[in-house]
């Protein structure tokens, strides 16, 4: 009870100060606010550079993808590493949990949600139809991320979600048969390595880390702009590998307490 009183006081003070501070904000949707137009309202803010110059620099219409994979590539690379590290952390935590359990006690506590197979036919059949569609759509999202909303993170999450759907509809083993634990951690590491590899190759060719323009002779493109565009696609594929593998590994470990047996 005391904690609730304390929480209410703290929240009211914090929220009141923030609500008071909101009055000094630029109004919602103002194109001339400092984040949109620079501090002095000039035309030289970073976001305006991105909006006007992205297509000239890299021939990518989707500005978000270009900023994500090219201009702020270093940031995104370590975001991918964070996702990878989170997957490893969950693996370590849940595995120590799973191996310490004795199976008899485990069975008592576990809720069983698979009461036989008789009522799983409809769900299983539909999921068998839907999962390939989801995966093809995910590949489209990754490959078409330059021209429409999408990219490595979205496509990776969709691919991971397709495996989660497979595991939910029938059993975790059905999904693990397609993508075993060894394979998904290998894929996660390969994804990060693809990303870092693009940066390192650029470095070996004499440019800065992740400066894709110099990859032009390796990618047989027309100019440095197209080289940047193609390198972005490669980088997005790396991101998609890591995110897919880690999403599935998080689900597999969390739903089975780290034992990777019989799932939800």
């Amino acid at each position: 009870m005391l904690s609730k009183v304390f929480a209410t006081i703290a929240v009211v003070i914090t929220g009141g100060l923030l609500l008071y501070g909101v009055y000094d904000f630029p109004s919602f949707g103002d194109p001339n606010s400092p984040p949109n137009a620079g501090v002095e309202g000039g035309a030289d803010s970073v976001s305006q550079y991105f909006i006007t110059q992205t297509y000239n620099d890299s021939k990518v219409p989707n500005i978000v993808t270009a900023v994500l994979a090219d201009y702020r590539g270093y940031d995104t690379m370590f975001e991918t590493v964070v996702v990878f590290a989170a997957g490893i952390a969950i693996f370590c935590i849940m595995r120590s949990l799973g191996n310490a359990n004795d199976p008899a006690k485990e069975k008592d506590e576990m809720h069983s949600f698979t009461h036989g197979d008789h009522n799983r036919i409809i769900i299983g059949t539909t999921c068998r139809i839907v999962v390939p569609i989801v995966q093809i759509f995910a590949l489209y999202v990754i490959a078409h991320g330059h021209y429409s909303p999408g990219g490595g993170f979205q496509g990776g999450v969709l691919l991971g979600a397709s495996f989660i759907l497979l595991a939910l509809s029938s059993d975790l083993n059905a999904a693990l048969k397609r993508l075993s634990e060894k394979n998904y951690f290998a894929l996660a590491a390969i994804g990060v390595l693809i990303y870092a590899g693009f940066g390192l190759v650029a470095q070996f060719l004499g440019a800065n880390f992740l400066e894709y323009g110099v990859l032009q002779p390796l990618l047989f493109t027309d100019g440095p702009e197209m080289a940047r565009s193609h390198s972005m696609l490669g980088v997005e594929i790396g991101v998609a590998f890591t995110v897919m593998a880690i999403m599935f590994s998080i689900y597999a470990n969390l739903s089975t307490r780290g034992t990777l047996k019989n799932g939800l």
Binding site: P35, F50, L68, A86, G87, I90, V157
Partner: peptide
Amino acid sequence: ANPLPHVLMLTAIVVGVATLGV
């Protein structure tokens, strides 16, 4: 629309779900 906050927050969402998993 300003693309820069979108980029920052897009990665923040995915990292957020990974840390939520932890």
